[in-house]
């Protein structure tokens, strides 16, 4: 990676392609997990790569290059999420048929959800996460959906472990409240 970076800095286009190739899965995974509403994944991936290349001279080599890129990617996603209109709450009437069904089915804790249920569950989780602030959303997504450890979150965000845990605790409390309101609210 270091050699590739040196070649990119020297203006080698082939090395730049290799770099994009090497980083595409990492950037794709982050974009997939933190894609703001109404934004194309391709556009966001492209924006992240533009930023990475434009700031390449700022990379001091203190942390692994992949971590630095991940941080740029996460910050870009967060910037877009900040610009989004946050929904205050999720109501039963906002849910699609499958989202409502998945909520019923996970309550019974029967078999593991199938692919369709998984997608519906993810969409519902996204709806609930959209009620949080971008920073809360980022922490809960990484801890609860991506199953990263607090240490990994610290490496990717630069935040302290205590700060991450406190943020996660508060965010989960808000999500639990949202879940309760959702289930207690009027149903069609």
């Amino acid at each position: 990676m270091t050699a590739c970076l040196e070649r990119v800095r020297a203006g080698d286009n082939a090395a730049a392609r290799d770099l994009v190739d090497a980083l595409a899965p990492l950037v794709g995974k982050i974009v997939g997990a933190h894609l703001p509403w109404r934004l194309s994944a391709d556009d966001l991936r492209q924006e992240i790569f533009m930023k990475v290349f434009a700031r390449l001279d700022q990379y001091a080599g203190v942390v692994p290059f992949e971590h630095w890129v991940a941080r740029v990617a996460l910050n870009t996603c967060r910037d877009h999420q900040r610009g989004e209109q946050r929904s205050r709450e999720v109501r039963w009437t906002d849910l699609g048929e499958q989202e409502a069904a998945v909520l019923e089915s996970i309550a019974h804790e029967t078999a593991a959800p199938d692919a369709t249920e998984g997608i519906a569950a993810r969409e519902l989780a996204e709806r609930l996460l959209a009620t949080l602030s971008p920073d809360d959303r980022l922490v809960v997504t990484m801890l609860d959906l991506e199953q990263r450890t607090a240490a990994e979150v610290r490496e990717l965000t630069g935040w302290s472990i205590t700060g991450i845990r406190v943020r996660a605790f508060r965010a989960r409390r808000k999500l639990r409240k949202q879940m309760e309101q959702l289930q207690e609210g009027p149903r069609p």
């Binding site: 997939g32 309550a107 019974h108 692919a115 519902l124 959906l145 639990r176 879940m179 309760e180």
Partner: peptide, 23 residues
């Protein structure tokens, strides 16, 4: 069979396979 109201943790567990899916 439990009939408790689903929690955020249960929803997150159900959403994980999709969350972990690589682009």
């Amino acid at each position: 069979m439990s009939v408790r109201k689903p929690s955020w943790e249960q929803l997150a567990r159900a959403a994980r396979p999709v969350a972990a899916r690589a682009e």
